Simulated scan of single mutants.
Amino acid sequence: MNTNASVHPTAFVEPGARLGDGVVVGAFVYIGAEVEVGDGTVFGPHCVVHGPTTIGRNNRFYAQCAIGGDPQDKKFAGERTALQIGDDNVFREFVTVNRGTGNGGGVTRIGNGNWLLAYTHVAHDCQVGNGCVFSNNSTLAGHVVVEDQVIMSGFSGIHQFCRIGAHAFIGMGALVNGDVPPFVMVAQDGYGRPRGINSEGLKRRGFDADRISAIKRAYRTLYVSGAPLDEARAKLEDMAADSPDVRALLDFIGNGDRPLLR
């Protein structure tokens, strides 16, 4: 353990854990033997971190986070699996993040600059990108892929093996059981359904009017025109020649284990 880390007298850090410079370990925290923590990361009181887990720099874990625990999967038989967390993430109170499973890739990953608010859950083998916001009580089932800059509103949930494309917005309470393409906004109606594109979020991230217009045309082709999926994809192929954003949306379609949400 690095002597430059600050460890509260009531905390317990197992021999073999590696703490970077400036790490702060609060009261009653437990850190397991196979945990590696990057410089400047802070653990609030009563956090529990099991390994194998690698945590990057300047992360902030608030009270009662449970990180790196065994996957909640009946098939898990104690095989060696891992959790990898990047830099500059915020984990608010009671966030839970599980390690992977042996038959599901073995690793759960969370990228950089994400905000996981109170009571959010990231299950085994999930892959989360960068700059996402998971609002209170939002939940990922196992094997979910969440690309960059996704916003999940409170009490939303994603079915196992679904993919959520970059810049998508999942509305409050929406339950998603299919793949959500990039830029699309989903709102609750029983199970969540597409309800346009995340125009406001795109504007905030510097998308100009031409880019947003191209994405809107692609959305109308896919969701409003009434065309069968194969016909819509053919039309999107033509549109993608002039728009990298439409190309990203088209590349996303049809590459997952779950059906496209339509």
Rank of each mutant, 00 (worst) to 15 (best):
L202I: 08
A17P: 00
P181G: 03
Q160V: 06
T53K: 09
V122L: 05
V48R: 15
V90N: 13
V90A: 13
S213M: 05
G206C: 06
G178L: 02
H121C: 06
A63W: 07
C132N: 15
N89W: 07
A174Q: 10
D87H: 13
A5Q: 05
R195E: 04
A17S: 05
Y191S: 13
E231L: 10
V37G: 11
G56M: 13
R99D: 05
T54W: 14
G56R: 00
F28R: 10
Y223K: 00
G102H: 09
F43M: 06
T139R: 10
D208C: 03
G40C: 02
G44M: 04
M1V: 14
L202T: 11
A187M: 10
N114V: 11
G86W: 11
H159S: 01
G256C: 09
A209W: 10
V49P: 15
R195G: 01
K235T: 14
D208R: 09
T53E: 12
S153L: 03
G20C: 07
R233S: 07
D87I: 07
P9G: 15
V176I: 14
D88V: 03
A33R: 12
A33F: 02
R18M: 11
K75C: 04
G171M: 05
Q188A: 15
G22Q: 08
I158L: 10
R205V: 14
M172G: 15
A227P: 00
P182V: 03
V146C: 02
L116D: 02
N114K: 04
V246C: 09
M185C: 01
G178Y: 01
V133C: 03
L236Y: 13
D73W: 06
V24M: 11
C162R: 04
V29G: 02
T3N: 14
G51V: 12
L202H: 11
G78H: 08
T96E: 04
P45L: 02
L19K: 08
T54Y: 14
T101L: 10
Q84P: 00
F28M: 07
V107F: 13
V186E: 01
D179V: 03
Y119M: 02
R57L: 04
A166T: 14
F169T: 00
D230G: 08
G86M: 13
G86L: 12
V224M: 12
V184Q: 05
L229P: 00
Y219F: 10
D257A: 06
Y223M: 02
Q64G: 00
R109V: 11
D73H: 08
K203P: 04
A248G: 14
V145Q: 06
L202R: 10
A218N: 13
A141V: 08
H8N: 13
A234F: 02
S135T: 11
T221R: 04
G51T: 13
P181I: 03
D73Q: 09
V146E: 03
R211D: 12
V49T: 10
G111T: 11
S135Y: 00
I85C: 01
Q149F: 12
T108K: 14
H143S: 09
I197H: 02
A248E: 08
A166E: 07
V224G: 03
I85F: 04
G256N: 08
F207P: 00
Q72R: 12
D21I: 01
N255H: 15
S135M: 14
D210R: 15
